[in-house]
Design a protein around this nucleic acid. Structure first.
Lengths: 220, 220
DNA sequence: GTCTATACTGAGATAGAC
DNA sequence: GTCTATCTCAGTATAGAC
């Protein structure tokens, strides 16, 4: 078995032994970049390995030297995204409040989406889900991000910034779901708003809802 | 061309000329019922005409006497849903406030989803989108529902129930998106909550958001 | 390891008997 | 109009030369 993703956790980060290895790794990054874009545009089922190869500028067969199946390629794509999210979570300014940090993360993911780099994978594809759960790096990264987010939500509740009348998973999924929300595309497609405005809108409804706040009469 | 959906708007509702016609129409209902279920479970790309035919208990070829393509079948499925939504909107108690009516609609769509009857169609499939937009009944129903919802939102804003600091389309899409929200499936899959609870949670976050309302000290 | 060429399969759509 | 059987093609994956 020669198809081991150079991004897999087996190889310690930064360990590059030769020039050819380095080139191989760079090509893999290019594949994942293109995959992210195509997954965002077409979705998993409609992205073909043919067009992916064409987009990268390599032969289709070469893809299978990097990833042993389309599913595992998608898993690698998602894993890289999760790692980036994790990395962002870890480097956020500690003085920021939990709510601000959650907001910043949501803004970042929506910006990635606006840039066409957000690989949205269908939850209805059993083969894909199985591949995801069977890919070591993916489950690890998912667990790490999930845990970090849950902590952030709990801190937000304790700090009185987030509602305490809902279970933590509900809040967690609510902010997560907003990053895949189809209204983002609809609002952008309408052409009425800038990307920044759309992101503002979505963050606003996510945290403050659609209803008019009951802040009595004064101020606003 | 003999494949004209008996649910198409060309035939006035209630016009049934013969027993065979009636049987044909009933079978078409059965096809759409099964299609809704499979579209909800598997999604458009993964639903095969083979398994749909098997689920209905008819031959695959017979499907094409009712619908000329998989895309148009999906369009008919969505159209029927939109018509039901429209019908519900029209029969809602007039004394209910706009917010309550929007809430009731969201609850209903989520209940449909819980029952596995919600056909979720991907927005990333160009062939499908083209078929949708080229299907007369679909565009009509979509327009009618969109307009009715926009009116409801506007009334909600005027009544002071919904936020006035966001454009109407933003609120409209926000409530719409909630009915396709993947967190619904995740929360149900966790097994921690009943379907009713999950629906309550999603309605709550949709209208009131994740943040703790600032009603602490009186008058801000 | 990358290329070109190809095998294989699943699935949408059609043909023709009844 | 419904059935069985078949066509066609896109797309994943692999073989083999270099």
């Amino acid at each position: 078995m020669t198809t081991a993703s150079s991004l897999s956790p087996e190889r310690p980060a930064g360990t590059v032994r030769s020039f050819r290895d380095r080139q191989f790794q760079l090509r893999e990054e290019a594949i994942l970049d293109a995959a992210n874009q195509l997954l965002a545009q077409r979705g998993f089922e409609l992205m073909s390995m043919d067009e992916l190869a064409a987009a990268v500028g390599i032969a289709k067969g070469s893809l299978y030297k990097h990833f042993e199946s389309k599913e595992q390629l998608a898993a690698a794509s998602m894993t890289r995204l999760l790692r980036r999210i994790e990395s962002r979570l870890l480097t956020q300014p500690a003085q920021d409040s939990p709510r601000r940090r959650l907001e910043a993360l949501l803004r970042w993911t929506l910006a990635e989406r606006a840039a066409g780099r957000m690989p949205l994978l269908p939850s209805t594809n059993p083969a894909l889900q199985q591949a995801l759960m069977g890919t070591r790096g993916y489950t690890e990264a998912l667990g790490a991000v999930g845990e970090a987010l849950a902590q952030l939500v709990e801190q937000g509740i304790e700090a009185g910034e987030l509602r305490s009348d809902l279970p933590v998973p509900v809040l967690l999924f609510t902010v997560y779901a907003r990053s895949c929300d189809p209204s983002f595309d609809f609002l952008r497609a309408s052409g009425e708003f800038s990307d920044e405005q759309v992101i503002d809108f979505m963050v606003a409804t996510c945290f403050d809802g659609m209803a008019r706040p009951r802040t009595g009469t004064p101020a606003q």
